[in-house]
Amino acid sequence: MAEPYLSAADMRGGYGKADILNGCTLTVERGQIAVIVGPNGAGKSTAMKAVFGMLNLREGSVRLAGEDITQLTPQERVRKGMGFVPQTHNIFPTMTVEENLEMGAFIRDDDFRDTMEQVYTLFPAVAEKRKQNAGELSGGQRQQVAVGRALMTRPSLLMLDEPTAGVSPIVMDELFDRIIEVARTGISILMVEQNARQALEIADIGYVLVQGANRYTDTGQALLADPEVRRTFLGG
């Protein structure tokens, strides 16, 4: 079997002395949506930050498209094709929507206007507000700007840290629809989600993390159907 597009294997490490990740493994195929769920403090966001290089790994490796990128900084990983949307502080609030997207494309020397048009096509609501400061938009629209900013480098793997945190259920459904559209263009998605049930519904593969290690790994539908997972993590 060919190597998966992203393969983060046996990751161990943390911020201080104690490890938060205890042998966590995440893989994503091209164009797949992978969702990480789990209880509070399970190390979901930490696992994603480790994949992005914001955390020093004591053990384990991260490989992207067959290349070992374990030692690269986050900035270098962006150039390798990773896009990251942090959970908070993920926009430039006093800059316009358009400027936010421009800054997303900062490392690109070529003409990025067509990418910008693609982002606007994907998010028509923010396209209307392109001259408005991003900080003045609603929560859902800010998330769209944040995702759009990360898409400007034309990443092959887009990582989203709780994209639906603090937005209304309607906006959440809308965001998930957009994420599916992004995945259809061939971009792999790795996403941490609090709204586990809804996120697993769109997931090609779901990871249930507990105490920094994989507890269950299966397709989203299979996890939703698993009575054990339902009882312990999805509230019945």
């Binding site: 990251f84 926009i91 430039f92 800059m95 900013r149």
Partner: peptide, 20 residues
Amino acid sequence: RAGKAMRAYSDNEDLALLSG
């Protein structure tokens, strides 16, 4: 471009770093 990069850095240092 340089001026916008300055504003971006002033707005959000970490995100500016991520943007290269």
